[in-house]
């Protein structure tokens, strides 16, 4: 399956509810242009996590239409979703590293899922750890690392397979300011290399320091919408 790079993610009148509960996302229209960088903000309970869940294809909307890389999810068979998910890198607030694996093997996981050859995998993971400044801890148990280091391992894992889209949920929420800045610089660098980036945050200071278009969620509605035109370009 070859994905159309001119289409990233498009939501049309998307709604989502958990079971029989109320709608947590309502009439969300969103068109993430390739190569764009967006912030996603909103109060707790506004639906940020749910929107991210739909963006990284962990769930399907209860109504509306979601298109990912030119594929309409409402008609796409379930068996095709894993390959589509591998085009998306996800950085979680709580890192979600696998404690029984070394740092190296955590980062290598997406490459193994993509059946990358061992020789190429070693090189790619080595380079990625070097890029996030963790080349000396490849064999370490993730639990022995600081929060900032663990977050950088999570970032390395999210981007090692060169995803088309990088999503991050409060990536600086559990780290100090200096580490947060360092993480954002990594995201900026990825953006410069052409990766589409969307970062959910509560941190208004970061948004001021790294100005990009902002998607604002309030009570399940996306109140400020980004268009491909105003979100593109490199800051």
């Amino acid at each position: 399956m070859v994905y159309d790079p001119s289409h990233m993610i498009r939501f049309e009148e998307v709604g989502f509810r958990y079971g029989p509960g109320p709608e947590v996302l309502r009439d969300v229209d969103l068109d993430l242009a390739p190569g764009s960088f967006h912030w996603l903000v909103g109060a707790s309970g506004a639906g940020k996590s749910t929107l991210l869940k739909l963006l990284h294809l962990a769930d399907r909307p209860t109504r509306g239409r979601v298109e990912a890389f030119g594929e309409d999810l409402s008609v796409l068979k379930r068996r095709h979703l894993p390959k589509l998910r591998r085009q998306i890198g996800m950085v979680f607030q709580d890192f979600r590293l696998l404690d029984h694996l070394s740092v190296f093997d955590n980062v290598a996981l997406p490459l193994r899922l993509a059946r990358t050859r061992d020789s190429s995998l070693r090189k790619d993971v080595g380079e990625m750890l070097d890029w996030v400044g963790l080349d000396g801890v490849a064999n370490a148990d993730p639990r022995t690392l600081s929060g900032g280091q663990q977050q950088r391992v999570a970032i390395a894992r999210a981007v090692v397979a060169r995803p088309l889209l990088l999503l991050a949920d409060e990536p600086t929420g559990s780290v100090d300011e200096a580490t947060g800045t360092r993480i954002l610089r990594l995201f900026q660098e990825l953006h410069r290399m052409g990766t589409t980036v969307l970062v959910a945050t509560h941190n208004e200071l970061l948004i001021e320091r790294f100005p990009h278009p902002v998607l604002r969620l309030a009570e399940g509605r996306l109140t400020i919408r980004a268009t491909p035109a105003d979100a593109g370009g490199v800051s």
């Binding site: 404690d99 694996l101 190296f104 290598a108 996981l109 995998l121």
Partner: peptide, 11 residues
Amino acid sequence: MKTREAEAALP
């Protein structure tokens, strides 16, 4: 590096 071990993605 313990690459073989990663074959067991679950503990």
